[in-house]
Amino acid sequence: MPFDLDLPVLWFAVAVLAWVLFFVLEGFDFGVGFLAPLLGRTDAERGAVVRTVGPVWDGNEVWLVAAVGVTFAAFPDWYAALLSGLYLPMVAILLLLAARGVAIEFRGKQDSPRWHARCDAVLATSSVLLAAGWGAVLGVLVSGLAMAADGEVHSAGVLGGLGRSLEPLGQPGAVLGAVAGPLLAAVQGATFLGLRTSGVLRVRARRVAVAGAAAAAVGTAVAVVTSTQPVVALAAGLLAVAAVAAWTRHEALAFTASSLAVAAAVAGVFTAHLPVLLPTTLPGGADVALRTAAASEHVLQLISVAGVVVLPGVVAYQVFSYWVFRRRVASPRAVPAARPAPGAAAVSR
């Protein structure tokens, strides 16, 4: 490297950034997913809610691909310990993500209310479970895993071996995360819908945003008492701002504040034990630490060069994509009656 950069630290920062972006971006689209049946009373209204995330969910999910890819590339031991230790929860999350992505993508491709209802049900259920599941996983990152000296969680024979990867979910941190996840996603989702919908949906979204943000702010404020982490106080403050902003109809501010609260919380979780990435809860076990888990210097250099070459391009065309769709909110919609013939009604373009 031309500059004497501390590559492991740099790539830790990149990994955290990718995870933060993933949680912030998917946070609102999880929220939108389970708010759709609560806010939309008719098929058309639910459709309108889902369509606000239609063009973005895939791009948001690529941040998960990126986050996992960077974690694997830069810290193979962290990747290995975390995923194998949380085997069943992660499998559940993957399956829910699969069902959810397909529900969003397939919904608009058919014009039958029954098809829509099925997709909506899958979408809402998977979205709320995903928010809870990821919340629990973040909780585990704070509490730690029972990794032995080889860096792996071994079966203690609980529930015939199933307990190995399920037990961590019983820790207080994970339970707290599972409650906080859907709440924060609801706040983010509702404030996002405040920005992207109008009329009755916007009114309903605002109510949810105010109530949700207030509840989340109070809950986090209570946590401030028991926690020494400054990010908790920061998150509480941001959520309070979000609640007030939603109440006073500063929709952009409400969305920004709630998203920043999520970003602060996630960044706080990932950096809670530095220089340890994932602490062990087992006496005599081995932590996953930033230095020892890092890939070889050569690989870190390789991905740095690749990042420098490729990422400006990625940013450029993603910005271009947002620019192309910048007028969406203001643009006139197609008249539904203009859709031709029944067979063609499903032409979801």
């Binding site: 058309a44 369509r51 919908t197 009329g199 949906l201 909110v329 643009s331 006139p332």
Partner: peptide
């Protein structure tokens, strides 16, 4: 795409991306 959009029901208007999906 129609130049101007006469109809104005709330659900559809809130579906600001309806045209593209």
């Amino acid at each position: 795409r129609p130049a101007g959009d006469p109809t104005d029901d709330a659900a559809a208007r809130s579906a600001d991306v309806a045209i593209t999906y």
